[in-house]
Design a protein around this nucleic acid. Structure first.
Lengths: 192, 192
DNA sequence: AATGAAAACCGAACGGGATATGGTTTCCGA
DNA sequence: TCGGAAACCATATCCCGTTCGGTTTTCATT
């Protein structure tokens, strides 16, 4: 049998790195977070840290992937409707500015097709739009949303609004992101 | 009298740099645009280029400021309604991906309060929201928009949607940004 | 038209960034 | 217990933005 996979110590260290990365980013901001700092935060050399992640960008991508998993478990499953999950996530995001900043930064950098996280984000957006679009179709069948509305277009709009609100919120934290999304939902939900 | 200000040659060179920066970004993407390349593109050394702009970030900010001026002159003045101006700008943006990328990148980096362009973006968003919010108030007075809608909230939503759509469009250029904004406008505009 | 001060520009160097290389040490299953 | 892979490090490399101390060019003043 070929020996493959990591040792127990390595698996724990990897998790520790992901957690520490978040703390460092939350404290210093994305721009001022270097692999040197990340390495120091977990008691490794730069090369030691890069043993776990082939690049800084891949490390960050893994942080976001893990966040997606946690969010999906917390707000995706037990929530009755995806819109409630979306609002819950957005509310939660206001408590983790480091993650929001990391996400905003990496998603924009990844528009470059050569960026290592390009495919990750392309697929992520596709799946988020697909899921939310499907939800809107359901609401239309249930009569809660105007059937004339294009569900895919509307889903894209929700995702866009969520992303754009984050930028404005980071520049001005007095902006209440969830309130704006609720307003958008009221706009698409049929009245009376 | 103290001699101050630039020579004719310098003023022309400065403009040339701003124009060339756009071309280089459009060709190489923001990530791969270095001051070395920028300098080569206009026949200067790195230090020579930095004589005009104290930093790379300041140069990029000036590119965006110039874009704002041009857009404002082109779509802000002669357009009847700001919403038409917004849609026209968004349509135009699809033809200048380099600018869109530069804007998206810099606006996110500038969320760091230490970033040299932080104040620029804070003020820019404030003024855009104020202008659009005022327009919405006018439409409400004219009876074109539900007076119950919070105009500032709605303005923020339009800005957020515009920004967020750009990210999705850069990742998937088949997305029609203007169509989505028109959809949003239909949602807020009173029907029948 | 000569002058001189500031603008325009350059070569070289600096500090810091991510990452590749070639190791040594530690782990742990066969 | 042993051997191979994982875990980890010191060092080196290359590119980045930026600084410093110049030289050359421009052009208002005289």
């Amino acid at each position: 049998m070929a020996r493959r996979g990591s040792y127990a110590k390595g698996i724990a260290k990897r998790e520790e790195i992901l957690t520490a990365a978040l703390e460092v980013i939350a404290r210093n901001g994305y721009r001022r977070t270097s692999v040197r700092e990340l390495a120091e935060a977990v008691g490794l050399s730069q090369a030691g840290l890069l043993h776990y992640f082939s690049s800084k960008e891949e490390l960050f991508q893994e942080v976001l992937r893990k966040r997606d998993e946690v969010d999906h478990d917390s707000y995706g499953v037990d929530m009755a409707r995806p819109i409630d999950g979306l609002i819950a996530v957005i509310r939660h995001n206001a408590d983790v500015p480091g993650l929001v900043q990391l996400y905003a930064q990496l998603s924009v950098e990844a528009v470059d097709p050569e960026h290592p996280s390009h495919d990750f984000f392309v697929e992520r957006y596709e799946s988020v739009r697909r899921e939310f679009g499907e939800f809107i179709r359901e609401e239309q069948r249930a009569g809660a949303i105007d059937p004339e509305l294009d569900p895919d277009l509307t889903a894209t709009l929700f995702v866009a609004a969520s992303d754009g609100l984050q930028t404005q919120w980071m520049l001005d934290p007095s902006i209440d992101m969830s309130e704006h999304i609720m307003q958008l939902w009221r706009l698409v939900a049929r009245k009376a």
